[in-house]
Amino acid sequence: MHPALAVIFLTLFSGGGFGLMALVATVNDLQIDGGLNPLQTTVAVLLSLVFVTIGMLSSTAHLANPRNAWRAFTRWRTSWLAREGVFAVLFYPFAAAYLVWIYFTGAPSAPAGLVMASLAGVIGLITIFCQGMIYATLRTIRQWNTPLVPVNFYAMGLASGATVLALVRIALGGKAGFLAGTAMALIVAVAVLKGIYYFWIGKPSGPTIHTATGFNRFSVRLLDQGHTFGTFLTEEFGHRLPRERALGMKVVMYLLAVMIPLAALAIVVTDASSVAAAVAAVSVVAGIGVERWLFFVEAQHVVNLYHGRQRC
């Protein structure tokens, strides 16, 4: 698949934003480490809104005809993309109401405020699920057609959200030991789940050039694809990554998304250093960006079977 930056930014930033909001709600609901103070909560929710907005705006940049973007909310009965749009928009009033509540009352952990925060968090989590299902429902791309995709989106949204929340807390003078520990646990979950995913998609399965053409008992070889230069199909679906390069990118991804943040968060736990927390947050977002790029480039659409591939 063509790794369009607009679509990569959509799930990268909005996933982190929704994860951040869900964790803000959880921390204040359960009063973990005494809960967040009004300033910390305000900054975290604002960051969440900024992240979600970056994601939403970049997704409209991907549209070839954005004039009709408002129609994307209409087919929520069948389309996961429409559901994602509906829930993402529904997220705003609750998150904004929580901000307004804190502004006027200064009590982020009062019950009425927590109701708004929790609703925003739950809606954010539902949106992450919808984003995963956009990809997981496509039977045409076996690397996406697996429940591991929404699971991975959850792990990565929550891991980046937790790292950013630890940064916010520590930079604004709070105890972040527990939050940093949570972020470390979530990052370990990302490493494990993504490992399972890479193992899973490494196994050949699905349609082949034989089932694509119907010649199941013969060897089949493309002689000519019928056009001289690129088409929409080759540009959108033709991307491939050589095995060695893919491996190299996965090493970079694990380094940025797992190793560096884990080391930095370990420093945060022992020394409460806000510089280390910032390094962790930037690194984890960059690493998940690399992961999202790989997610697209490694996805092999079955239409490639009609352009000469033996299997996808």
Partner: peptide
């Protein structure tokens, strides 16, 4: 008149029938 050009339908088509 309703299409917004998101390409999602072309991803769902196994036969390459849709072109933006």
């Amino acid at each position: 008149s309703k299409c917004m050009g998101c390409n999602y339908c072309s991803w769902a088509c196994p036969y390459g029938a849709r072109e933006l």
